[in-house]
Structures are given as structure tokens and as C-alpha cells.
């Protein structure tokens, strides 16, 4: 399994072994590294909208609602310190990890609700 260290101040998105992940930071809560693919059709969840009150993330493609508790349960094993973080990702140990900083829309206080489903 790849053990990947990064600086959470400059990295919030990564790809490894065909999977995408992003750092989900909720106010007053410990950050999570979660899968970026919506379970519905694989939409980029980092571009979704957070509904903090409803504890949901809405996928930008079809407004699929994903419960935060589901994201919490399926989050990658992650340790975050003040200026460094480490995550253990699935896959072979030598899998290359591509880390980036991206614009995340799935951040508080963006709480606009999607219309429709």
C-alpha cells in the first residue's frame, strides 16, 4: 500500500492507481481524505456543494446527495499534523501518487442547495 506524505496546506487533491481523492475540511472537524468519484456516475465530488446543515455533499453532475457519514466511513486512513499529513492508499506500494492543489467547491460555507435530483 502506498504511504504518501504531503503538506495539507498546499495539496488538497490526489490521484493514485486510477482513483481520485480530495481533502474534505469541515469547520471544527478533523479533515478527511475522501474518494472524489460520486457513487452514482463518477462525478467529481470536489466540485460539489456542501450542505452542512443536512450533512450532505451534492454531486455537481446529477445533484446526487451523499451523506457525510458515508464519506466519513469510507475515508482513507489519514493523519494530519500542523504542517504535514500522511495517508495510506489502496494498491501496490510502488503505485505513483499525483498530488495537486485544486480549486475545491465542496467547502463550507457553500451551502447552496441543488435543485432537482
Amino acid at each position: 500500500m502506498p504511504v504518501f506524505g504531503f503538506d495539507p496546506r498546499s495539496v488538497n487533491y490526489m490521484e493514485a492507481d486510477g482513483n481520485r481523492y480530495f481533502l474534505l475540511s469541515l469547520e471544527g472537524k478533523a479533515p478527511l481524505l475522501v474518494r472524489d468519484e460520486c457513487p452514482h456516475r463518477g462525478g467529481p465530488l470536489h466540485l460539489g456543494q456542501l450542505d452542512v446543515a443536512a450533512e450532505e455533499l451534492h454531486c455537481p453532475w446529477h445533484c446526487q446527495r451523499i451523506a457525510l457519514r458515508h464519506l466519513r466511513r469510507s475515508a482513507m486512513p489519514l493523519i494530519v499534523r500542523r504542517d504535514s499529513a500522511v495517508v495510506v492508499l489502496p494498491g501496490a506500494g510502488d503505485v505513483p501518487v499525483r498530488a495537486q492543489r485544486r480549486v475545491l467547491l465542496a467547502v463550507p460555507p457553500a451551502q447552496q442547495r441543488c435543485e432537482g435530483n
Binding site: 478533523a30 493523519i79 494530519v80 499534523r81
Partner: peptide
């Protein structure tokens, strides 16, 4: 406040982290 631990840690991921 300095350290947060999240996600689905298992015996295997713990071992991989300690080995690393």
C-alpha cells in the same frame, strides 16, 4: 488540536504506515 486521525484504518494500513 495538533494531530487528527481520520478514515478507515485497518491492521494492514497501520502495518504499512509503521513499516514506512
Amino acid at each position: 488540536k495538533e494531530i487528527s486521525i481520520t478514515g478507515g484504518w485497518t491492521a494492514d494500513t497501520l502495518k504499512a504506515y509503521f513499516q514506512d
